[in-house]
Design a protein around this nucleic acid. Structure first.
Lengths: 143, 143
DNA sequence: GGCTCGGTGGGGAAAAGTGGGGAAAAGTGG
DNA sequence: CCACTTTTCCCCACTTTTCCCCACCGAGCC
């Protein structure tokens, strides 16, 4: 199975639940993800297979540069393990929705090894004027 | 199951008991941890699986640098094994709470291989202005 | 049209968090 | 060795939150 691709808008209900897009579900059983804010304006969902190497590298960073401990602690403090319920939904705590301005609608965006969750309006604003500086690199990848 | 993540505030009752957050409980039975102060302003809770390699390294250090014995002894002297009671609570002795300024509220923070226990106010102060020097490292980890 | 699958909503049982009384154990002094 | 004090911790009770489960709706397919 290849990386996550595509974008889907789903409703956030009164309890803070959102259905994970069907095409992002891998096993048919209940799955769990790491929910964390690593970019301004978006939450990220890591499946365990993608999270494991991230966790290793974070610990490596602290061992080599102990002063980075506070930065890493701030990250892990705001991260969270979330599981899908029997309907394939995840629960996003109020606190995390506020961080990225999520209201009634959540935009799920496939980002290869992870899934990003955006407020639809903010996503449009962030992607409508991409920097053309990188176009040659991207074109050469697809050549 | 991956490392400890998330942050949770719980009440310290008059007897010095605090509920361990449910998401930090691994086995359904009673568990035990090593409670120790390794950082200024925070207590650390090590599950046995994380403590074992630490213990190895401490002994290794003494073997290679015998002058470090006093420092290690000061650490182990203030450490403590704590078990959860049937309600999933641990007991934090007054002496340890005073060391890190813990009063009525205790903030449990997941820090991958261990759990840290902070006074909520001190945690905010310590993490609200993280050193941006490490941002590039962290971003490259999540790329 | 009937069926299935994906998405949405809400009620209720179960679990988590909190507090306190009292028995058991440990510590202290005669 | 016994009696008394203090501490520990086991157990019960209550409140709040979580989340499991059922039901419905709508779109697409057979």
């Amino acid at each position: 199975m290849s990386g996550y691709l595509g974008s889907f808008v789903h409703q956030v209900d009164a309890k803070g639940r959102v259905a994970l897009p069907a095409s992002f579900r891998r096993g048919s059983e209940l799955e769990s993800f790491i929910l964390i804010q690593v970019h301004e304006d978006a939450l990220s969902l890591f499946p365990h297979s993608s999270w494991r190497p991230v966790e290793e590298e974070l610990r490596e960073l602290i061992r080599k540069q102990p002063e980075a401990r506070a930065s890493v602690l701030a990250l892990t403090a705001s991260a969270l393990e979330v599981s899908t319920d029997k309907q394939g939904r995840i629960l996003i705590p109020d606190r995390m929705r506020e961080l990225v301005g999520l209201r009634r609608e959540a935009l799920f965006v496939g980002a290869l090894n992870k899934i990003e969750i955006w407020d639809p309006k903010r996503f449009r604003e962030s992607t409508e004027a991409p920097d053309p500086k990188f176009d040659p690199f991207i074109e050469s990848i697809f050549a």
